[in-house]
Amino acid sequence: MLFDSWDSIGRMVVFGIAAYAGAIAMLRISGSRTLSKMNAFDLVVTIAFGSTLSAILIDGSLSLATGIGALALLIVLQFVVAALAVRSGRFRNWITTQPVLLAWGGHVLDDAMRQQRVAIEDIEAALRQRGFARLDQVMAVVLEADGSLSVVESAGTDGAARLSGMQVPPQ
C-alpha cells in the first residue's frame, strides 16, 4: 500500500513530535549515564527505546499515553538498574562485563585476546591513537567494559593505580 490516508500521516506527525519531545525530556531527566558509552545492558535499553519510539510513530492502535508510558518505563528501569549496580558489586558484576587486561609489559596476552575476540590490529590502532608506535612503549592495554581499549602508559604509581582490581601477570 502506497498511501493509507491523510489521517494516518497527520497522526504520525503529531505523535512523532510529541513522542520525540517526551523522549528528549526523559533522557534529560535520566542523566548522562543513559547517553554515555554503553555496556551490554545500556545497548539493550537503547534498542528497546528506539523500537518503542518507532511503535509510537507507526502503530495506529497504540495511544500516545501508552507509548510515552512505555518510554518512561524503560528510563525508570535503566535508572533502577544503574542505581542497583552502584550499590551492589554482585549486581554490577551480573549485568556488566569487567575490564580485561589484553597486553602487559610489551606483550599481548594471547589467551585474553582470543577469549575477548580482539585482534592485534585493534591494539595497534589504540596505540597509534595515543601516539605510540610499539607495544613495548606502554605498560598495559585494557579492554574496558564498554568495549573501548585503554592504553596505560607507565608502570609508576599512577599507571599501577589505573589497573587496581585487575589480574596483572607476574613480571
Rank of each mutant, 00 (worst) to 15 (best):
V118I: 14
V118A: 06
V118C: 06
V118F: 05
A119H: 15
A119C: 07
E121K: 11
E121G: 14
E121W: 04
D122S: 14
D122R: 12
D122F: 13
D122C: 08
I123H: 00
I123F: 02
E124W: 00
A125K: 11
A125S: 10
A126G: 03
A126V: 03
R128S: 01
Q129C: 09
Q129H: 11
Q129N: 13
Q129K: 12
R130Q: 15
R130V: 01
G131I: 04
G131K: 00
F132G: 01
A133W: 02
L135A: 04
D136A: 11
Q137K: 09
Q137R: 11
Q137G: 09
V138A: 07
V138P: 04
V138Y: 04
M139W: 10
A140R: 02
A140H: 03
A140Y: 04
L143H: 10
L143K: 07
L143G: 06
L143N: 07
E144Y: 01
E144K: 07
A145L: 04
D146G: 06
D146N: 15
D146T: 14
G147F: 08
S148E: 13
L149P: 06
L149M: 07
L149T: 07
S150H: 09
V151Q: 06
V151I: 13
V152S: 09
S154L: 10
S154N: 13
S154E: 11
S154M: 09
G156M: 03
T157Y: 03
D158G: 11
G159N: 10
G159V: 08
